[in-house]
Amino acid sequence: MFPIEHFLLLAALLFSLGLLIIITKRNTIMILLGIELMLNASNLNLVAFNTLLPESVDGQIFALFVIIVAVSEAAVGLAIVLQVYQYYQTSIPDSISELKE
């Protein structure tokens, strides 16, 4: 058994790095990659807390559902990115500001 704090610290690091990627990158696909990283950090937390209760698998099943939602998000998000790219001919999120003007 490994100390659970190591899992949780790694998950916190991955979550913060995903947040950093979402804020700093100027490309919509990179932002999607950051969202995937944050979802995986939450998954790591669920699996880590499941090791505290070895007789149940509730945390692992919750992690499975998070993976399913991440897959749907990636598919629909990339479809939206493709349509936005075809309409605006750019993948920089800051230059898609039609509603702001």
Binding site: A12, L19, L20, I23, R26
Partner: peptide, 15 residues
């Protein structure tokens, strides 16, 4: 890359 300073600030604060 844009908003590097504010992004680093938010990420380090979160961590």
């Amino acid at each position: 890359h844009s908003y590097v300073m504010s992004g680093l600030l938010v990420a380090i604060g979160c961590f």
